[in-house]
Design a protein around this nucleic acid. Structure first.
Ligand code: MN
Ligand code: MN
Ligand code: ZN
Ligand code: ZN
Lengths: 133, 133
DNA sequence: CCATAGTTTTAGAGTAAGTCTAAAGATATA
DNA sequence: TATATCTTTAGACTTACTCTAAAACTATGG
């Protein structure tokens, strides 16, 4: 487990430019499931010289190199998740917040009996909300 | 079980105009999970005087009235599903085809132990492909 | 130091899904 | 017929995202 962003980029063959490290410092540590524009807004506060295209380029690069996964859970926006291990999600429609559900919290059975389907991956997508207090 | 589109629209308080019936004749019977533009292309072949806006208006009306559900399973497009009962889906990334997985084919357990989550609905979303022959 | 090649970043144009607007067309009723 | 209500329409608009081609870095070798 390597928490140093520079080394994680190098480990995947990505040159750790200042821009990429600034983006990685946020998006590789967050639990927020941000969209590309949310990453842009957020990273600009600490790293103001940053174009929209660089954010998209970098996020797509991180996805290609296996540092991020893309999730499509709501209309009109892709969000990014630094947790690339299998897990499930709860989508809170009102707020737009996406919560992680640990893989081991849920058991899914029966998929293996669908012999006509070749399944690469799966997850449970729940809609609802997090109870307050 | 009522397969007459005109009566199904009336049953939901929708005036069954010729346009709406033409759209419903396709989208309320298909198993294809089409996008709005796919509905437009398809319905125009048998009903040429049809604007894009009418297709979007009608699909959104059908969703509001409970005749269709919207699914967001792949990047950049919403698809529509006349099967509004609970069921799961397999997304075939290469072809873009979405297959239904019957609700009873899969058992999901453990969601009820997540007492901090209030879950309205859920489904398993699998990625993979349908085996050929 | 310079020259040069490769890489990264950029603004802004382009694309595509979807919504909105305001007018025109239908239909129903009195 | 007159009037009200509902439906359909073209096209403008918005938004998320990609593409392009030039500028700005960085590394290397002389
Ligand atoms: Mn993408
Ligand atoms: Mn919609
Ligand atoms: Zn997640
Ligand atoms: Zn379905």
């Amino acid at each position: 487990m390597d928490c140093n962003v520079v080394d994680r980029l190098k480990g995947r063959g990505i040159i750790p430019s200042a821009h990429r490290v600034a983006i990685g410092d946020y998006v590789l540590r967050t639990i927020e499931h941000p969209s590309a524009d949310q990453v842009w807004e957020r990273v600009k506060t600490s790293f103001p010289v940053l174009s929209r295209a660089t954010v998209y380029n970098t996020l797509n690069l991180f996805v290609r190199k296996g540092l991020l996964q893309e999730l499509i859970l709501a209309e009109g926006k892709v969000v990014f998740d630094p947790n690339v291990a299998d897990h499930h999600h709860l989508v809170e429609e009102d707020s737009g917040i996406i919560y992680d559900i640990p893989w081991d919290a849920v058991q899914v059975s029966g998929l293996d009996t669908l012999t006509d389907l070749e399944i690469d991956s799966y997850q449970v997508v729940a809609r609802g909300r997090k109870r307050r207090h």
